[in-house]
């Protein structure tokens, strides 16, 4: 990194946001021989939306996926460094990945509801984690999750319809509802609106803003307008490096790094 004391600078400026929910320390990710992330350190706070921006291929998704160990599903991927969730290293050998992923939920780029009913989609997580005590409990969780995802009014009369029959935007909100049904602490979103039209996008952005109060949200986006609209913290990645991390307002109006400024002003990307 060309700015070794960046992290301390960034953290120092966030004294108002309490202890970090997730704290990454010199995290590097390799795909086979190829290094995709180079010693990234960053703190992520709860009740804030953190946006990862940067040109495509710079490693945003790769880094995001280290936070819930989804990189484990890629045989060639290897992670170095330390990632603490509430102070616990999630890469320690005794870590229960299943528990971790219940605490750190994920929403993907393309809506990926299961080919099951709307109800079963939401009930999936609570069932496998044994969260619901009874059918009534489960019904409650399903309703609450759909309400929080702003989908309840639209689907309450057709919970037994297939989740794949919904529109793209509804499917993505269903996926968000599915993720919050297991009551996670962090929600990771990888370009959640890139497959959606502007109206559906606006709906998801509102939703992210509503959800912010309960969770730490990390959103990868290639749209700087979106980052500016929904996030309070922005991290700019370039070629596997975290170039700059700060308050969204500062990053967009007053970036410290030349590369950030070039990107923000559309010089490349």
């Amino acid at each position: 990194m060309n700015n070794p004391d960046l992290t301390s600078v960034a953290q120092a400026s966030f004294t108002d946001s309490g202890p970090a929910k997730i704290s990454a320390n010199k995290v590097s990710v390799y795909y086979g021989e190829k290094k995709a992330i180079d010693e990234v350190s960053i703190d992520i706070h709860t009740k804030y939306v953190t946006a990862f921006i940067g040109p495509s291929g710079c490693g945003k998704s790769t880094f995001l996926r280290t936070l819930n160990r989804m990189n484990d599903t890629i045989p060639s991927a290897r992670v170095d460094g330390e990632i603490l969730l509430d102070g616990d290293d999630i890469y320690r050998s005794k870590m229960d990945v299943v528990q971790l992923r219940a605490r750190v939920g994920m929403v993907f780029q393309k809506p990926n509801p299961f080919p099951k009913s709307i109800y079963e989609n939401i009930a999936y997580g609570p069932k496998i984690h044994g969260i619901a005590e009874s059918k009534g409990d489960l019904d409650g969780i399903v309703e609450q999750s759909l309400r929080r995802a702003g989908l309840w009014e639209e689907v309450k009369d057709r919970l037994s319809d297939s989740g794949t029959a919904l529109s793209g935007g509804q499917q993505q909100r269903l996926c968000i509802a599915r993720a919050i049904a297991v009551d996670p602490e962090v929600i990771l979103m990888d370009e959640p609106c890139s497959a959606l039209d502007p109206i559906a996008t606006a709906r998801i952005e509102e939703l992210i803003d509503e959800l912010r109060g309960r969770y730490a949200i990390v959103i990868v986006t290639h749209s700087m307008q979106q980052a500016a609209r929904v996030s309070q913290r922005t991290a700019f990645f370039h070629l596997g490096n975290l170039v700059e991390y700060g308050r969204t307002g500062d990053i967009f109006t007053n970036p410290r790094e030349e590369r950030t400024k070039d990107y923000i002003t559309g010089r490349y990307g």
Binding site: F108, R178, V182
Partner: peptide, 18 residues
């Protein structure tokens, strides 16, 4: 079956056999 399906389930904290 699209791998997005499998990833979606794993990201919910389901085990491989689940």
């Amino acid at each position: 079956v699209p791998s997005a399906m499998r990833d979606g389930s794993l990201a919910m904290g389901a085990t491989k056999s689940e």
